[in-house]
């Protein structure tokens, strides 16, 4: 690691109050940055607007997979309980007649349709969430900062990443300084 080289990864500005963070966020938003973020110890309401974020569409994923769950349940139950043939060779093809009901009685299958719908919806929401926010990721350069540990306690941060097209060592620094952060630092990452 003797000849390691470093390049700028992001600017990290620290603030003490939600209001200072929000007003700074509005400045960064208006300056037209795209690859930047606010870091807060809890979900802070009003920041969607202050950062100019569009609503998330994770609900679409959850809904689609919920419906897939319901459909899976219908197919599974009809195939294994009601059909008299077994194309998949899984030991089905034996209609179960219980309680004088038709083998494919629909009302009695509602509870399992519901439960499987919920189950797949839950898994889709979990993995959809992790997919959209691109976690797990343990190696983000922001963790190089010692002060960043406050972001899960009681401090508020704005980070502007170097891969933003508007990122400029001088101008970005000047913008963040004009928002009066309590601390401002440039974080570098190793170039491999």
């Amino acid at each position: 690691m003797a000849n390691e080289t470093k390049k700028p990864a992001l600017y990290l500005a620290e603030y003490d109050t939600p209001n200072a963070l929000a007003s700074a966020a509005m400045r960064v938003r208006d300056a037209g940055y795209k690859s930047w973020d606010c870091h807060t110890p809890y979900p802070m309401h009003g920041m969607d607007e202050a950062m100019g974020l569009q609503p998330t569409r994770i609900g679409v994923i959850s809904f689609i997979f919920g419906m897939i769950g319901v459909a899976t349940a219908v197919v599974m139950m009809q195939y294994t309980n009601a059909f008299s043939f077994d194309l998949l060779k899984i030991g089905a093809g034996y209609p179960l007649i219980v309680g004088g009901k038709p083998p494919g009685a629909f009302p009695s299958m509602v509870p399992i349709m519901f439960e499987l719908g919920i189950l797949l919806c839950g898994f889709a929401t979990l993995f959809g969430l992790l997919g959209i926010i691109k976690l797990p990721r343990h190696n983000h350069p922001i963790f190089e900062s010692d002060r960043f540990e406050g972001a899960t306690d009681d401090k508020f941060f704005i980070s502007i990443e170097a891969d933003d097209s508007k990122f400029d060592l001088e101008r970005t620094k000047a913008l963040l300084e004009s928002t009066n952060p309590t601390h401002l630092e440039l974080i570098e990452e190793e170039v491999l």
Binding site: D37, T56, L126, L129, P136
Partner: peptide, 15 residues
Amino acid sequence: GWRGAHRHWQVYERA
């Protein structure tokens, strides 16, 4: 690797 990012919180809250 949670870093409290608001873009994460936004999706997280909806989830």
